[in-house]
Design a protein around this nucleic acid. Structure first.
Length: 203
DNA sequence: CGCTCGATATTCT
DNA sequence: GAATATCGAGCGA
């Protein structure tokens, strides 16, 4: 399978999209002199954020200038600045009955352009390059200038492509939130060495 | 390894 | 004024 998941792929429940994105590629293309540089990684960790009924979501209060992408067309990048220091990247996704939703991309396994990512991060260890939402945006040079770009086209400087092979996926509770902590809307490849946190082993 | 804390934009109360 | 979909430095064990 090559190319990008199309618009319809993102038009289903946000949690389902989050689950299916594990194993796909996040690709950042940067125009150089004459040729494009590709920075990419396999998505190994995602989280789903819903609309008005998800107390942990940015969309819970309705549309604002920051979260407007979550209420717009699906398959679009939602990039926001948080904690005064970091950017996080999402892709808008929801079923037709939901008013808003997006999938936060939390971790990648570095694939293409690894040496450039190391420069962006000032970090040599590959497993620490993109194992967190703030880290991967730094490695791929993603900032708010990319908010609103179409993620369904290979021509976009930020987009999602099909992966090479399917990955295992398990669900877990979301990280870094204080509301709706019981929902299991975090999806990870449990065998990846590049997760933002280890999976809780069930007893 | 685990804990605490500072950085500090945006939004909410 | 407080909280936040985070990270890394500093410290103690």
């Amino acid at each position: 399978m090559t190319g990008c998941p199309n618009r319809a792929f993102y038009r289903r429940s946000t949690a389902s999209v989050a689950e299916r994105l594990v194993g796909m590629k996040l690709v950042r293309t940067i125009a150089g002199n004459g040729m494009n540089v590709r920075l990419s990684g396999i998505i190994v960790e995602t989280e789903a954020y819903g609309g008005l009924d998800d107390p942990a979501s940015h969309a819970r209060m309705g549309p604002t200038p920051r979260n407007s992408v979550m209420f717009g067309e699906v398959g679009v990048a939602y990039v926001y600045f948080t904690y005064g220091n970091h950017f996080c990247v999402n892709v808008s996704a929801r079923s037709q009955i939901e008013p808003a939703g997006a999938v936060l991309i939390r971790a990648l396994e570095p694939l293409e352009g690894i040496e450039i990512m190391k420069l962006h991060r000032d970090e040599e260890e590959s497993t620490s390059l993109t194992n967190g939402p703030g880290k991967l945006t730094q490695a791929l040079n993603i900032d708010s200038a990319l908010n609103g770009v179409d993620m369904t086209s290979v021509r976009s400087e930020l987009h999602i492509e099909f992966g090479e092979k399917p990955r295992e996926v398990v669900s877990a509770t979301r990280i870094g939130i204080s509301r709706a902590t019981e929902k299991r809307w975090r999806f990870v490849d449990p065998f990846s060495r590049c997760l933002s946190r280890k999976i809780q082993i069930k007893v």
